[in-house]
Amino acid sequence: MTFRELNTKLFEPTAQWVMIGGLVCLCQPWVELLHRYGLTITIIGLIGFLVTAHIPPEPEAEAEEEEELI
């Protein structure tokens, strides 16, 4: 598995879930520690998503196959 495939299947969704988790921590009223660090968790997820979203996906193999057939 290449780094780009790993990024698409693991890193990018993980960063999205960290952002969602940070928002949930920020909005819940029961645990003060989670509420205190909710914004930090959201920002960490946002930075992770910005980094992983700028890594281009694997080039498709179909374009190469079509060129070979012509």
Rank of each mutant, 00 (worst) to 15 (best):
M1N: 01
F3C: 01
F3S: 04
E5G: 03
L6Q: 06
N7S: 12
N7F: 05
T8Y: 02
T8V: 01
L10Q: 05
E12A: 10
P13Y: 08
T14H: 02
A15W: 01
A15E: 01
Q16S: 04
Q16Y: 11
Q16T: 06
Q16H: 04
Q16C: 08
V18L: 14
I20T: 14
I20S: 07
I20K: 08
G21F: 12
G21L: 15
G22L: 07
L23S: 07
C27F: 15
C27V: 09
Q28K: 10
W30H: 08
V31I: 15
V31C: 11
L33Y: 07
L33T: 13
L34P: 01
L34Q: 08
H35E: 03
H35N: 12
H35I: 00
G38M: 11
G38C: 05
T40K: 07
T42Y: 13
I44Q: 02
G45N: 07
G45M: 05
G45Y: 06
G48L: 06
F49K: 06
F49C: 02
L50T: 02
L50N: 01
L50Y: 05
V51A: 08
A53K: 12
A53W: 10
A53R: 14
H54I: 06
H54Y: 08
H54M: 14
I55Q: 07
I55A: 03
P56D: 07
P57S: 10
P57M: 11
P57A: 13
E58S: 10
E58F: 05
P59W: 06
P59T: 09
A61L: 10
E64A: 13
E64T: 05
E65C: 02
E65Y: 11
E66Y: 12
E66R: 15
E68C: 01
E68S: 02
L69Q: 10
I70L: 13
I70A: 08
